[in-house]
Design a protein around this nucleic acid. Sequence first.
DNA 1: GATTCTTTCAAACAGACGTTTTATACTCGT
DNA 2: ACGAGTATAAAACGTCTGTTTGAAAGAATC
Lengths: 230, 230
Amino acid sequence: MNRAAPARPAAPDDTGATRLKLLESAGEVFSRKGFRDATIREICGLAGANIASVNYHFRDKHGLYTEVLRYADRCAVHIEASEPVAGDARRRLRQFIKAYIAAMLDVGRPSWHGRLIAREMMEPSPALDAIVAQIIRPRSRVLSDLVEELLGPAATERRVIRCKFSIIGQCLAYHSGRHIHKRLHPGFELSSKAADEIADHIADFSLAAIDALRAGHKPARRAARGRPGS
Amino acid sequence: MNRAAPARPAAPDDTGATRLKLLESAGEVFSRKGFRDATIREICGLAGANIASVNYHFRDKHGLYTEVLRYADRCAVHIEASEPVAGDARRRLRQFIKAYIAAMLDVGRPSWHGRLIAREMMEPSPALDAIVAQIIRPRSRVLSDLVEELLGPAATERRVIRCKFSIIGQCLAYHSGRHIHKRLHPGFELSSKAADEIADHIADFSLAAIDALRAGHKPARRAARGRPGS
DNA sequence: GATTCTTTCAAACAGACGTTTTATACTCGT
DNA sequence: ACGAGTATAAAACGTCTGTTTGAAAGAATC
């Protein structure tokens, strides 16, 4: 009865050519087709590895999926650590949105990390709790702090959460709704150049809304009758 | 060689107890698990029908899925026709968002229509084109007209599209991100009462942003340096 | 009441999938 | 050189799934 990986059962190292190629290929296929639709045969074919290598290196399909998520997390940390966090809150929020949109639209290299996380958000697997704790919650905290600072005295816990979801929702729309976008507006491609313009729009849109909420302040409800600005 | 339904191959009527129960059960299961993960055996079990009834009434699994979408469309039209469209643009947009959020969060009766459309948006099946033409595009047109009217002289085609996606994205976030929301903020349930408050927030947030874009007008880009309001 | 059409049922089929087995190279330490 | 440990290969196994079969029950028509 052979169990798990041969000698080191839970070693999260990326050494080993086959193991690494399996992680990359699995990330690509999982992010495109989801856990169920992705087949081990296709992953191994893409990696140029044998079918049995998944059992050898990752015990089974779930083990492979879990390791892919941890692998993506490790890569994401490296990318994130090199990002600047300078400037005032407005500029930092804009930068946050730009980074998020870039990850969603996969500009630059063909990285599947953003797509995989987005998929996990929509259809959670048993590994979602770990993802929330390790990846999503820290990033959510950063955004919460930004929104809270921008809302100023108008910041309540509920309102910060709602604004945070409004911002993330706008970003996610360009990923989860990309097929609709393509069919609805064929002229407006989601290219790398468009990503920057989209991020600027979301930043403008959100900053204006937060400014208005801060200015309105008093009326927590029913603040939409008169012009919020002048 | 038996092909398709026995006598009337493409009759979209809902007569027939077994056929109707299959459509309802399939809609429930498809919306919860997706096309691939949903099994015919589970659908038939839920409907109290035999396995072979799918082949008899809908030819195969894809035929069943297509008919479920058409069935949902037929139901949606009935619901939508009874909605009021009175009031000024601001009030109509708020009403639009309320209806959208209600459909997303499935308040009221346990309808799977919203979930199914949302799933189809994320992972399109070959039937998506028909859905876009019959369901999504008309509704998108309504929202476009609303946003264009609200933007006034600041309305460009690109900006209308971006604002539209910002609004829809905020609504979709509470569906596609509901698992994250539950884990990130356990205290904030997505109940029926919260749906109204969420819709009001999205309306306030979006109306304020659109007002600011209209007021800013001139700077199509880079309008975030100074306060957009005063 | 016999015939025809429609609908349901239990059973099986063929294929795809995850997983396992067995055997074969390869890499060291000694 | 040799054996222990590591890694890959080909093939098969058992299971699950969509689909089909062939028969039987029910409804309708003459």
